Amino acid sequence: MSITPSEKNQIGIVSSFSELVNTNFQGVMNAICWNRNLNGDFKEIVSELKLKENITEVTIEDLSSLQLSKNGHIAREIILNDIQLLSDFGALPSLNLLKNYERDEELDFFSTDVYSYHVDRSPIPTSTFLCTYYGAASDILPNEQAIQKILIPEIREKLKELHNGTEEEFETFLEEYYFDLHYQPKPNAKPINLGIGHLWRLAVDNPHQEVLPCIHRAPKENDGEYRLLLIC
Rank of each mutant, 00 (worst) to 15 (best):
N30R: 02
P207H: 09
N22Q: 11
H118L: 12
I150S: 07
R201D: 04
K190G: 06
P93K: 09
E44P: 02
N164L: 08
C214E: 07
V58G: 13
I11Q: 01
K186S: 09
S2V: 09
A31T: 05
I74F: 02
Q145M: 08
Y134P: 01
P153R: 08
V28I: 08
Q84D: 14
R201V: 00
H198V: 02
M1E: 05
P213M: 11
Q10T: 07
L229A: 05
P93H: 00
D41F: 08
E176F: 09
E210H: 07
S127A: 04
E225T: 09
N35D: 13
H118K: 10
E19V: 00
S69R: 01
Q209F: 06
N9R: 10
S87R: 03
L66Q: 07
L66S: 00
S2M: 12
L95V: 03
T4I: 04
P187V: 05
I140C: 14
I192C: 14
E7N: 08
H182K: 10
P207T: 07
S69Q: 01
Q10A: 06
I147L: 08
G72Q: 05
T172P: 12
S6A: 15
L98C: 04
K220V: 14
E210Y: 09
Y101S: 13
N100E: 11
E175I: 07
T126E: 08
A136H: 02
Y178I: 02
H163M: 13
N22H: 05
R103N: 05
V58H: 08
D41T: 12
S47R: 07
I3A: 07
E61I: 05
K186A: 02
K186R: 10
D41S: 11
P191S: 10
K99C: 13
H182G: 00
I196V: 11
T128W: 07
F170M: 01
D62N: 13
L97S: 11
I215T: 01
S122Q: 15
N222A: 08
D41P: 02
K186I: 02
I13V: 03
S69C: 02
G165N: 15
C232K: 02
N37V: 06
E161V: 14
E102D: 08
P213R: 10
I55L: 12
L229M: 04
L229G: 09
P142M: 12
L92Y: 05
R76S: 14
K8P: 03
L181K: 04
L194G: 06
L141G: 09
L202Y: 12
K149R: 15
F129S: 04
Y177H: 05
Y101W: 07
F25C: 03
A203Q: 13
N37S: 05
K43Y: 09
I60Q: 06
N9C: 04
E221G: 11
N22S: 13
D113H: 13
C33K: 13
L174E: 05
H198I: 00
I79H: 10
H198A: 03
L95Y: 06
C232L: 03
I152T: 12
D120T: 15
V211A: 13
E225P: 08
L194T: 14
I13F: 00
G40A: 01
L63E: 03
I60G: 12
V114L: 10
S65V: 08
I124E: 15
V58D: 12
I215W: 04
R103F: 03
L230Y: 07
E169F: 07
W34R: 07
E161Q: 14
S87A: 00
E157S: 06
S16Q: 09
L38R: 15
A189Q: 04
N188K: 02
V119Q: 15
D82L: 06
K43V: 11
R156Y: 10
